[in-house]
């Protein structure tokens, strides 16, 4: 497969997962840069151009609360999961776990069909 389709598919795959990662990371308050650092430390590399607009959108949807605070001599906007965001995160986590449990075996090729085939033979 060429790099262009792979890049596009990777972006599509990451899009939904990044929302989950951001929501999960914002159980504690973070400002934009510190959130990016936290995600990078956890192994989730996310571009600034994607992350900053994403947290603003999530805040506009009411999933995050935001507040300007003075910190280290200058202002920063801190984001944290709202009550609605926390409820949604819980549901999304269940969905993620269920998908992961279903897709994991598929990716490993252990989906049950091979066993059935063997039984038929």
């Amino acid at each position: 497969m060429g790099t262009a389709p792979l890049h596009k598919l990777k972006l599509e795959l990451r899009r939904g997962v990044l929302v989950l990662a951001v929501l999960a990371s914002l159980k504690e308050a973070h400002y934009g840069y510190s959130l990016r650092q936290q995600l990078q430390d956890a192994g989730v590399d996310i571009d600034e151009g994607t992350l900053y607009p994403l947290i603003r959108r999530l805040a506009e949807q009411g999933l995050l609360d935001s507040e300007w605070k003075q910190s280290e001599g200058r202002e920063r906007r801190y984001y944290q999961l709202s009550t609605l965001g926390a409820e949604l995160l819980e549901q999304l986590t269940l969905e993620w776990t269920s998908l992961n449990n279903a897709i994991g075996p598929l990716l490993l090729g252990n989906n049950g069909f091979s066993n059935n085939d063997e039984e038929h033979h």
Binding site: Y31, G32, Y33, S34, E48, Y52, R56, R74, E75, R76, R77
Partner: peptide, 8 residues
């Protein structure tokens, strides 16, 4: 917000 992010 962009200013704060750049300064960070």
């Amino acid at each position: 917000e962009l200013n704060a992010n750049i300064l960070d």
